[in-house]
Structures are given as C-alpha cells and as structure tokens.
Design a protein around this nucleic acid. Sequence first.
RNA 1: GCCCUCGUAGCUCAGCGGAUAGAGCAUUGGCCUCCGAAGCCAUGUGCGCAGGUUCGACUCCUGUCGAGGGCACCA
Length: 570
Amino acid sequence: MTSTYETLRSRLQSAFNALEVGADPALRTSDRSDYQANGVMSLAKRLGRPPREVADAVVQALDVEGLASVEIAGPGFLNLTLETSFLDSRLRALRGDARLGIEMGVERRVVIDYSAPNVAKEMHVGHLRSTVIGDALARMNRFAGHEVIARNHVGDWGTPFGMLIEHLLDLGEDQAVATLSIGDLDGFYKEARVKFEADDAFKGRSRARVVALQSGDPETLRLWHVLVNESIAYFSEVYAKLDVTLTPDDVVGESYYNDLLEGVVHDLDAAGLLVESEGALCVFPPGFQNREGQPLPLIVQKSDDGFGYAASDLAAVRDRVNVLRADEMLYVVGAPQVQHLEMVFAVARLAGWLPERVRCEQVVFGNVLGKDHKMFKSREGQSVKLVTLIDEAIERAYVILDERGTDLDGDAKFHLAEQIARAAIKYADLSTERQHDYVFDLERMIAFEGDTGPYLQYAHARVRSIFRRAGDDTPPDAHFALAEAAERELALGLLALPEAFSASLAALQPHRLCTYLFDLAQRFTSFYDACPVLSSEGALRDERLALCDLTARMLRLGLSVLGIDAPEQM
RNA sequence: GCCCUCGUAGCUCAGCGGAUAGAGCAUUGGCCUCCGAAGCCAUGUGCGCAGGUUCGACUCCUGUCGAGGGCACCA
C-alpha cells in the first residue's frame, strides 16, 4: 500500500507541478500540525513572486479532499492536518497488511561486505560495529525485497600464516585444534607472535612456510585449512551468540581471490594504468597525494612480487560486479580504511570494472570508545573479546531480571537474558549516527529506562501483556475515532513507519529507524497511560485494542529488521 | 605539511536549508484502591569561534581553534 506520507507527497507534487514541474514540496512532519510543506518559499524565490501568492496558488491546485485540511502560515508554510476519516481508513488498511505499510522495492541484488574477522585471531570490539551494522543492513535490505549476498571477507591469507602454521605444528595438530576449538584464538596467535619475535629459527621456518603456502604445497594447505575451519567454526559460535545471520557459506576470504590476482595485474597493465614505482606495480588514481605531495599509489603487486590487499580488493570488486551481478555493493568497514577503499573504487572505475549503474559505497563507522573516551580496552589494555562483552551483558541482564522479579527460570530465563543483552549491545551500536564514535557503557545501554534496546522490548512486552489478559481477542474490525489526543498521536506514529524505514535504508543509517521506534514506543506509553484499554467498552475498546495490536506488530517488525528480538514477556 | 571525519544541554546522543534547536540520563516536583511505575506528566541549561552565501543556516562555503584518523609495499 502507498504510505500516508507518499500519498500526501504525490498530491502536493501535482500541485507544485502546476507552478513548476518537479518543484520539491519539501514535505516534513511538523509540530505545528501533522505535516508541513516547506517548498513554497524556495519556489517563490525562483519564480520571483511573493511567497504568499505562490502558497495560494499551490493551495488552489491542491487536491487533498478527504485527506487533510491545509492552512497557510508564516511566510508560506503549508500546514496539513489529516482528516480523522482518512486516518481511519489508513489504519484499517494497515491492520490487514503483513508488511505494515512498507512496500516491496524493485528487486536489486545487494552485496554487503561485513564483519571480516581474521583467521586464528580473536573477534574483539573492533569487529562489533561492522558485524552489527552490516547485519542490520542485510536484514533491512532483505525486508525491502532485495536479494542480499553477504560477504564475510575474512583475513585468511598473508605472511602471518607461516608463523601460525609453524606454531600449530609445534603444539601438535591435536593440541592446536583443541586450543582453537575452545575459542582461545587470542592465546594461539599471541604465542605464535612471541616465538616469531624471539626465536630466529622459528622465524626462518615461518618464512619458509609462507613460501610453501603460496606455492600450493599440499600438506601446508591442509594445515592452513585446519586453521581456517576451526576459526570459522568459532566465528559461527560468536555469530549465534549475537544472533547475526552470517553463516559459513558467507565466508569468502581473501584467499578466494588468489587465482584472480594475476588477472587483475594483467588487465590493469593492458588498460595502461599500471606503473612500476620503487619496484612495485602501482596504479596512481588522480587526486591522492602522499606526505610529500607526490601522487599516491595503490600498490597492486609489491616489490617482492607478493600481492597486497589492494589486489584482492580489486579482484573482489570484479567478482561482485561480473559474477555476482551486484546492483549495489556495500562495504561495512571502519573509518581508517576510507582512503584505501576510495582508491580501490577509483581504480576500479578507471579500469572500467565498476559501472556507474552499480552503487558502491563504504558504510563508514566510528570507533567504540571506553568511558574515558579512548579506544575501548580492557583494564589490562587488551582489546576486549566479543564473547566476553556479550557474556558480561547477559550476566548483567540476569541480575536486573532478579532485581525486578521475574516469573521465569531455568532455560527460559537464560534465553530472555540473552535477548535483553543482545538488544542492549546492538541497539546502543545502531542507535547513534554510525559515523560518530560512541561510548560503550554497559550500565547505560542495558538500563531498562531511557532510549535503550531493553526499553523497546519492555514497551513491546507491555502491549503483549494486554492481549494475554484480554485472551488474545484482537477485534477483527475496529473503527478509529481517535477522540483522545494520545490516540491520535499514536496513530500518526503508526502511519509513519514506511518513510522512517525507507529513509533509514536509503541513507544506510539504521539509527533513523531506531529513532522512529523509540518515538513510537513513547507515543504508545503515553497512550497507555492516558487511555485505559481493557476497562473501556464496546467500539472504544476495539479501537484501542487495534491500536495496541498495530503497535506491537510494528515494534516487533522494526526490531527484527535491526536484528533485535521482541520477547512476549519480560 | 596535505587530506578525511567530528565539535549541539552537566553527561550520552538526535536534528532532513525552514517557524520557539529536540530526546534520554542526571536534578527537582507531581502521578499506582485502575491494563506491567522497567512507566507517565511537569522542570532549567546549549549549536567551539569568526566571517560569508541565502528570504531563512546546527545544516552549505571560507578561515580559525580543538579531538580523532589517513598519507608506498600490514590488512
């Protein structure tokens, strides 16, 4: 169904078109009325006519009969107040719509590159944002009707693998697997690193092993596979704990592109883009400079003939465009890699590998900071393991549940604590503008009051409790009279999901959807406070139950596309 | 030195070129014989600084101060 906002917007567009084709009505929500159109003033400026006169002309041409009343205010604002009969018909249509007003988009294939941990290295807070934001974007895109291909570009190749394989051999394969399978990737990696730094013989073996790996020695490859498979199994456990949709099938690591790297170099050369500089094969995309103001290279092949990450990133672009047939490619990668990816995209465009029709964007995000506003670290100065983070949140949720008193126990209680913990962590991450750094404060994010994941879950659980008491009888047919102000405010909130969702997705900013959901939850709790549901009677009771039903469904849907559960009871 | 991002209330954060800049937390004061008070209602304070563009600027541009990041073979 066409959304309320879109219905109004298109009517306004027609009216504006009568004065200037394509003039933007600039329709926004308003605190003066339900919606306001701000487009008159800029149009008047362009036409060289007085704004009030233009406003009059727009209103003359505007057909919103049965939808809204219009008032001209101030210098030329158009304030629109929706008719109750219109709200009623919208809400009734919404009740029968499983998608709650959000239309299916034109089908597109969207490749989303996110999470990207390293084999034989711990997943730590540094991976949190990519994983959480990427997964939310994946879910939102899927719900919008797009085909999502997730790509977990794990670090599974490169010089560290010589040292890691040698360490595996030193430990003995069984012992190494045992260590890795309990998830102690951190210990494993660090021990290898320490030996590498301190022991020249080990260092020598490691280097030889890298050569063996790169030349495809079967036994070395087998050992490498052991590391990779154990790591992927561990990552899957972490994803399950976070309720992230990534699976082992989504893992397409750097090594996947090995066979394509020669082709990248060859084709860049054939295109006349490749330049040898200081022994390395480089492309110099325009507009990038180094410290000395000289052109900055994207190094495709290093002076030792090895391939850098730029080569595999370029190969990945080609693979995603040509093989996966991506319409859109998103890289959920942190701010430090902005320049690198800009250069990769620039080179891909220069080489003609990245057509204009393919939207290709880095979804940049800021750092996770500690309360001291420095990079989030443990007390010992180590980066914090993701599993530790989640476990602490679960423990905290457990304590809070006990304090509040809960009917649940055993598995059900633990499951709920997990749901709350995930909601706290994910919502805190998703609800701030992603490009900003944010402060990780478990106490605040898991609090059940305020703008938090658990608060939204609570709002949902409260609505659901009404239906438990009512005996689950949502009225099949309700009319919305919206006599109380709180009912009307809630209704307007319920009708605004489509634009909140599509704006959030279009800008790749999940926090916009979070803001919407929090606002909706507040509208609901105000309504809940002011308008008794179960003790009211007849048509009023039906109406209020229907509002509750829509609210619950909307909160559940909104949270689910963010990757957050909405428990029935808390 | 050059480039990028960011400076909004005591704290954590929203803010789409539009009317008096909003939430949450914290503060203070109200509200439970009534559907979950994990809530609701009320309460004061602020756009780093200086210019410019515009009918209109937190938003765009320039400069400046401050914080973070990047700037040739690690990803």
